[in-house]
Amino acid sequence: MAGGVHGRAGDIAVSLAVTYIRDRATLALTIALAALLAGCADEGWHGKNITGLMPELEFTLTDENGNAVTEDVFAGRPVAMYFGFTHCPDICPTTLARLAAATRRLPQSVSEDLQLAFVSVDPARDGPEQLDEYTGAFSDRMLGLTGTQKQLQALTRRYRITYGYDEPDANGDYEVSHSSAVFVFDAELEPRLMLLDSLEVPQMVEDLERLLTKP
């Protein structure tokens, strides 16, 4: 009986201790999370700051006019680059339309230099004509690019992104998986920012304005 009481008291003590430890853990976690959030808030970006984390822009691709081009096509001007494919009816147009809308809302001093690029990772279906028609629907300043698998892989690997193809269906249609963020490079073509697909237009505007405003 006494043992039972003792045991119960012990149980309570243990349970209190567990609660205490759990509370401490929760508290520690909360503090860590708050610090993390505060860190993010301090940094102030809506997207992800990738300054110094990845190599500068470098590629050889074919543009929407059928010309072979390198990163020099953007030299001296910042560029926002998205990787997708034209047979992507939902997320690609959604992200590209937001990016184009954000660009139009930037102050002219910031926006005049900014270039937009759409890199198709589906060269089998996206020839220059298809790319030209597609990019033109979003913005005059959006350049469509694609290349051979080797060229595309050389570029996507630099930014640690992957893409892939599903098996074609009976109609020969197939799905393509691709990176969902917009990569922003500064005028020196250094990667600076990833605009995640979850960002709304005003958040994109804030990030782009902050990054591209000349001191």
Binding site: D90, T162, S177, S179, S180, L196
Partner: peptide, 9 residues
């Protein structure tokens, strides 16, 4: 579906 920065249908 977007998972780990990768989008697919």
């Amino acid at each position: 579906i977007v998972r780990d920065g990768r989008a697919r249908m």
